[in-house]
Computed example of a mutant assay.
Amino acid sequence: MIEMRDLRKEFTVRVRKGVLRREKRTVTAVDGIDLVIAEGEMVGYIGPNGAGKSTTLKMLTGVLAPSAGSVSVCGLTPVPQRTRLALSIGVVFGQRSQLWWDLPLRDSFALLRHVYRVPADAHAARLRRCRALLELDEFLDIPVRQLSLGQRMRGELTAALLHGPSVLFLDEPTIGLDVVSKQAVRSFLAELGATGAMTLVLTTHDLADIERLCRRLVVIDHGRVVHDGTIEALHSRYGSRRRLVADLDLPLPPGFTVPGAELVSLEADGHRASFDLLSSSAGAVVGELTALASVRDLSLVEPDIEDVVARLYRS
């Protein structure tokens, strides 16, 4: 569905050199990305600020022309075939709107039907589904400028889907949203992706979005891919570990050890112990622990992906 081969994008900027003189300098935003995304995949595309994420999306959607390499989306070359491509993709940029600011949300949806020349029955069916899943009915007749950020983002998602795209590009779709709105957007996207009928590329700084929605994670830095795989592979590669927290009836004795785990902290006068899982599974460590100590309660803490990604950036 999406193919990038040695994709590059360079910009020429002018840098001040002295009082009156400026010097031209070439800045490489995307530096030789090779990436293939299959139909129905949900891919998280992340990186630090300035890594080249938004530049990549702009080349995929035909907004920017590559400096070198090739890119194909839905079998089309984005820039020369941008008009045809627009019928096959949906785009949501967190800081950009495709809705009419002074019109009620309902009227924006009606106008988009004519922009994309969508048959009335297909448009009505998709709008009906979005209204149910995103709970749009309570603000359909309110002008877009009067909507809250969460309401507007739900409207933006609907607008991007009404023409039935094959690929959905999302750039920071939950930025600035409250917890309730984030959950509504994530649940909607999860249900959308579960059908396998749409390819989704998600760029975000909110890693909870990635964990909730995407099995595949692509991390870029300085315009290059530094990780392409599962979130679990990222944890394994950068040494993050699951943690077992045990509440104990009695404090642990000095020198206490559990095979396959490392004791990392003792709290509550020794009644709460935290173990990092090393070579053994959680079940095996729990079995060893309960045989050696009087355990009142257990909890398993998954590694924080934000810590893992921060460690990757630092490396």
Score class of each variant (00 low, 15 high):
A68P: 15
A65N: 15
V71D: 13
K53W: 06
N49E: 14
T61S: 14
G50S: 11
G47E: 09
L57R: 01
M42I: 13
K58E: 14
L64H: 13
A65P: 15
L64T: 06
T55K: 03
I46W: 08
T55A: 13
K58W: 07
G75R: 13
T56E: 10
A65G: 15
A38S: 15
L35C: 13
V43W: 00
K58V: 09
E39R: 10
C74T: 03
T55G: 08
T56P: 07
T55D: 11
T55E: 11
V71G: 03
V63E: 14
L57V: 14
I46N: 06
P66W: 02
S72M: 10
L35N: 11
V79I: 14
I33D: 00
A65Q: 15
T56A: 12
I33W: 00
E39N: 05
L76H: 09
D34K: 11
G44S: 11
A51W: 00
D34E: 07
E39P: 02
G75V: 08
L64D: 06
T77W: 04
G52W: 00
G75E: 04
L35P: 01
G44D: 03
A38D: 09
V36T: 14
T56W: 04
A51E: 04
P78L: 03
I33F: 02
K53L: 12
E41F: 01
T77V: 15
V63N: 08
G44C: 07
L60R: 01
G47N: 08
E41Q: 05
L60K: 00
G40W: 00
P78E: 13
Y45A: 03
V71H: 01
G40L: 02
S54Y: 04
E39S: 09
V79K: 05
S72Y: 02
T77F: 03
V36W: 04
D34M: 06
P80N: 11
K58R: 13
C74M: 14
V71L: 05
G50Y: 12
L35F: 10
A38W: 07
T61N: 11
G52E: 04
G50R: 15
K53Q: 09
V79H: 04
S54I: 07
P80F: 11
P80M: 10
I33M: 03
S72V: 10
G62F: 03
L57T: 07
I33E: 01
